[in-house]
Design a protein around this nucleic acid. Structure first.
Lengths: 142, 142
DNA sequence: AGGGTTTTGATTATCATTATCGATTGATAA
DNA sequence: TTATCAATCGATAATGATAATCAAAACCCT
């Protein structure tokens, strides 16, 4: 099922309404580069629909997180970032401190070790975050 | 060299002054449970030195981070937490979403895989964060 | 001990996020 | 289609953590 349908069903199920703003925000979010901030999306949306409010973008992104279409990320610059959820594709991040580039990585062996660690502490994992901060290849050369 | 000396040398080197507040904050910080917030420390300090200001605690913790005595952690509840740095003992965290308990873990095999990931991207690691969020054994039973 | 500089503590500013509120819109039933 | 009414919008104010400001006090060096 495509995301627009998932969102629509989610809204109906919660007794919420489908509005042109919500549709537009979802559409713009999905068409954007990954890891965009609220500010990024807001500015892009203003070009199509100049009256849209910052609060509406904010509220709608929370809804997208709630219904599983987006996930919220924090990389330490004080701006929450949002990323579309892809099926069967968990990944973590390399974050360049210099240019801000964000590179995704997957390492199933790390995930497996994580599970071992949790098990050793009788801990039930709900989610995790794993980020490596440093310099990307371009910035390291300078 | 003990931490009080490290801090004192750091202050001298930077042309900063040793004050009773700074000494008291360091002392109280080192005596506290790990992962304490600014609020935690502030409240504890007020009992010994009722006039100390919130801003002073805040500023001094930043200094402790700068001179390598403390590290700052963020576990997603909006409160920065500070932890004394121990030599040769890097660790990461399990964070209970229910009771807030923070459990430390070390897994050299994960660190090794991290390095491999970074190398594959020509990425230079400066620091990293790795946190597993979920339920501790106590909270999972309920 | 004294003078110049830093620090303190109280307060205010800042920034991201969240709450509020009157006007407007969407969904449902007549 | 229209009426109804709750949900939503957009603007703005509130919030909360952190950072900046500034006069008074403390510190350090001579």
């Amino acid at each position: 099922m495509e995301q627009a349908q998932v969102f629509s069903d989610f809204l109906t199920h919660k007794g919420l309404k489908s509005t042109i703003q919500r549709k537009l925000i979802l559409e713009t979010f999905l068409a954007s580069r990954s890891h965009c901030s609220i500010e990024d999306l807001y500015l892009k949306l203003r070009k199509k629909h100049s009256k849209i409010g910052y609060a509406t973008v904010h509220r709608t992104l929370k809804l997208l997180v709630e219904c599983g279409i987006a996930i919220e990320q924090h990389f330490g610059d004080g701006h929450a970032r949002y990323e579309p959820v892809r099926e069967n594709s968990h990944h973590d991040h390399l974050v360049c401190r210099e240019c801000g580039e964000i590179i995704e990585f997957e390492e199933p062996r790390i995930e497996q070790l994580q599970n071992q660690v949790a098990m050793a502490h009788n801990f039930t994992i709900i989610s995790h975050r794993h980020e490596l901060y440093g310099l990307c290849s371009g910035c390291a050369q300078k």
